[in-house]
């Protein structure tokens, strides 16, 4: 009973609350961009280490599989937040474009990694620097 209560408590603490104002929505968008930047940069660093032959195929596959899952979860969580006004719609639209490109890029990386194809992996990683810049710019603008 006590364990169940702790579990419910932790689940409640970890829940994403709905955005009730523009400021709140902007804060959630900013946090989403930071989380996605973390996933994108992890993928970027993993690819760089792969290109320098500093890591193993199973490790690359695992790491990039995790970044893909993270990316999907981050984008999915943001999509479920209700934008409260028109200004929030604009932020949502801007960030959604970046998130969509990020999730598809992370998926392509995972596919290339599981095929252990370095050429395909290098090609799939090309959008990462631009994505990273876009996310950093979004974070700065929406601080």
């Amino acid at each position: 009973m006590r364990r169940a209560a702790i579990f419910v408590f932790v689940a409640l603490v970890a829940c994403v609350a709905p955005a009730r104002s523009f400021g709140s929505f902007q804060g959630k968008a900013n946090a989403t961009a930071k989380d996605m930047l973390s996933a994108v940069e992890t993928a970027r660093l993993t690819v760089q280490l792969t290109q320098r032959r500093k890591t193993f195929s199973p490790f690359i596959s695992t790491a990039l599989g995790e970044t893909e899952r993270d990316g999907d979860a981050i984008a999915g969580a943001f999509d479920s937040v209700q934008p409260p006004d028109a200004r929030s719609d604009k932020i949502r639209s801007d960030l959604d474009q970046i998130l969509q490109l990020a999730t598809s890029t992370l998926s392509n990386l995972r596919i290339a990694a599981r095929r252990t194809n370095l050429v395909q992996l290098t090609g799939a990683a090309k959008p990462l620097p631009a994505l990273s810049e876009q996310l950093q710019h979004f974070i700065e603008v929406n601080q």
């Binding site: 660093l45 032959r53 996310l135």
Partner: peptide, 23 residues
């Protein structure tokens, strides 16, 4: 801007310094 949330990310700094053997 990487926030560590997976064990695999812990391996990246060692891999960057020592490569496959370190990893």
């Amino acid at each position: 801007g990487i926030s560590v949330s997976h064990l695999s990310q812990v391996g990246l700094p060692v891999s960057a310094v020592f490569g496959k053997i370190g990893l």
